[in-house]
């Protein structure tokens, strides 16, 4: 299945802004994080298709995963 991964703020340093990946079925967000060497503590906010998600959640074909470090503003 195909997954779009988007990285933001410090997480994109040395990695990428946005990438498409072919992943086996049953891939979880944690698998994606592992593949990118992003510790869970740095992936503070994760969206799948614009909804908050957790590392253990499964991904599905055509999902967009957006990963942010801890950030704030206002």
């Amino acid at each position: 299945m195909q997954i779009t991964i988007k990285l933001f703020a410090m997480l994109k340093n040395g990695r990428f802004d946005s990438a498409q990946r072919e992943c086996p079925d049953n891939t979880t967000i944690q698998d994606i994080l592992n593949g990118l060497a992003i510790p869970v503590s740095e992936a503070a906010i994760i969206f799948v298709n614009g909804r908050h998600a957790n590392p253990e959640d499964d991904l599905h074909h055509a999902d967009t995963v957006s990963i942010f470090p801890p950030i704030g503003g206002g």
């Binding site: 703020a9 410090m10 470090p69 801890p70 950030i71 704030g72 503003g73 206002g74």
Partner: peptide, 10 residues
């Protein structure tokens, strides 16, 4: 985050 990117990180 706030020092590096400011509030516009949002």
């Amino acid at each position: 985050a706030l020092p590096a990117y400011g509030t516009n990180v949002l």
